[in-house]
Design a protein around this nucleic acid. Structure first.
Lengths: 177, 177
DNA sequence: CGGAAAGGGGACCATTTTCGTCCTCTTTCG
DNA sequence: CGAAAGAGGACGAAAATGGTCCCCTTTCCG
């Protein structure tokens, strides 16, 4: 299968010599698509675009883009217009859309472990479990972090980003908080 | 299989009516184990314990605990002692161990998308991709958040937590912005 | 000096998630 | 009323995760 290798940003990375296998906080590919799509929409903010047009413009497969758009709509990030001449529009300014919302729309609400979010069932080590509920602190921290970054932040200076393709990532380790 | 239902905190949660299926930032179960194990070790800080003892004390299966301990050791969070009378010890104070480190040891370094961490390969929508490198900001934010919570924070007032077993989750996903 | 108690490092398999696609229904414009 | 869109969900293939096991090395102790 794999219609376009590695998705939007290439997750095809069979082995890396890291400490452990994966990548901590692996953002789902859907979320990635979400941002790509939203960013593209931000360029003609307010305008109504169809899923098909967006798929063309982003280079992502149409069915996937459609799915993404549906989820973003449910999440309250897009306004949908049905019927002929329909499509989707971004009615909020990119500065008003947080990454947290985007991810929440595509992956569900923020919650790290099961015992964080109200499932009081089957904790096999109930009596011993020393954490019980303390992941919430972490949860909060992450949520706050995600709330602090907006779609606009991600979209900003995209030209620059295009130019710097292949750059050493000096950008990292910015903000203090 | 499923030797002990739902792992340390119970991930058995077939369906929830949330916007999307999953749980944003699903922390891997390994990380959960890691914290459980480390917390238990923190109780007799400095003392050397065997994987077997820890498995008994936490209620988690021995092989899994062993694996977890190995990873934590590689990650530099534990000191291991081989041979008879060997075991593991926590030589840093719980206040000096960040959640970020724990997760990194068990899941790999912080990185949200592939194009964040220096892999400049196969971005299917290279020319169109408006983000290219801007996830780094998010990445940073999350990393910082994780750096700000220590093992001590998670372990603190565990008695209290035990009492609040089954509480309504007012804490979760609170904060506004 | 040899055996038993530990940990080290992987291989391996089963289960769970994720994701990408498709199909059918509803809405709305012309 | 018909065509162009979105809504919603079912499904199947592929990938990630997790849990176990096995064999090797180290070290203590008799």
């Amino acid at each position: 299968m794999v219609p376009f290798p590695g998705g939007a940003h290439g997750t095809a990375d069979p082995d890396r010599g890291a400490t452990a296998r994966g990548r901590m906080f692996k953002l789902s590919r859907m979320a990635d698509y979400g941002v790509v799509v939203l960013s593209r929409m931000a360029r003609d903010q307010g305008r109504v675009v169809t899923a098909y047009e967006l798929s063309e413009r982003t280079g992502l497969p149409q069915p996937t883009v459609a799915k993404t758009l549906k989820l973003l709509t449910r999440g309250g990030l897009l306004e949908s217009h049905r019927g002929t001449q329909g499509g989707y529009s971004l009615d909020r300014a990119p500065t008003e859309v947080t990454v947290s919302e985007i991810i929440a729309a595509l992956e569900g609400p923020v919650a790290l472990t099961a015992c964080v979010d109200g499932s009081d069932e089957n904790c096999a080590v109930e009596s011993l479990c020393p954490i019980r509920g303390h992941w919430e602190r972490v949860n909060e921290a992450v949520k706050d972090a995600l709330d602090s970054v907006t779609l606009a932040d991600l979209t900003a200076s995209q030209e620059e980003a295009a130019i710097n393709f292949g750059r050493p990532r000096d950008v990292a380790v910015a903000s203090d908080a």
